[in-house]
């Protein structure tokens, strides 16, 4: 019962702040709403008995990624940049994509196993299980992801590097 109440409260906050993030005008405020959403996601992990994931969610997303987001947003002067004009065709394409994605997700969730079927073990997911899974069964995707991140980082450095001797 407690879990249900928590779930509902967290969901309302998560969706609410996600909406606020979308409609907000001030980029810094938007970023902060996103932070709140991430917190709720961490809360979901906790209710699902995965405290490790919750901690990692906060450390990685709110602690590192969002700080870097803020970092960039703060350096951009919103008054001078103004709202970039979005062509109508882009809007239409975006809306279509979003609709398709929504259909796919809803379809996937309802047809396969349903919302309530996310497995929660009584003791929760232990750190040992996470580690074993990452380094045996999911070894290749795990390594590929890190290579992807490395590529992105090198790309960013190359793009930003302008002090050439």
């Amino acid at each position: 019962m407690t879990e249900w109440i928590l779930f509902v409260v967290l969901s309302v906050i998560a969706i609410g702040s996600a909406v606020m993030m979308l409609v907000g005008r001030n980029p810094v405020h938007c970023a902060l709403w996103l932070v709140l959403t991430f917190f709720c996601v961490a809360g979901f992990f906790l209710t699902l008995g995965a405290p490790f994931l919750a901690a990692v969610q906060i450390i990685v997303y709110t602690g590192a990624i969002m700080i870097l987001f803020l970092f960039v947003v703060m350096l951009v002067n919103p008054e001078r940049e103004g709202e970039p004009a979005v062509p109508a065709s882009h809007r239409r394409a975006g809306l279509t994509l979003a609709a398709v994605l929504l259909v796919v997700m809803v379809g996937a969730i309802t047809t396969r196993s349903g919302l309530g079927a996310i497995p929660t073990e009584p003791g929760g997911v232990t750190l040992r299980q996470v580690g074993t899974a990452l380094l045996t069964e999911w070894m290749l995707p795990f390594e590929l992801t890190s290579v992807l991140l490395l590529v992105a980082m090198i790309g960013a450095i190359v793009l930003a590097r302008r002090r050439i001797e």
């Binding site: 902060l32 490790f52 906060i58 709110t62 602690g63 590192a64 703060m74």
Partner: peptide
């Protein structure tokens, strides 16, 4: 005593301290 989190909790919380500073500055 958070069994599976412990020290990660400390890190998760200390990373949040940056927000105060960054937002204050901005």
């Amino acid at each position: 005593d958070l069994k599976d989190v412990g020290i990660l909790y400390v890190f998760a919380v200390t990373t949040l301290g940056v927000y105060g500073i960054v937002l204050a500055g901005w």
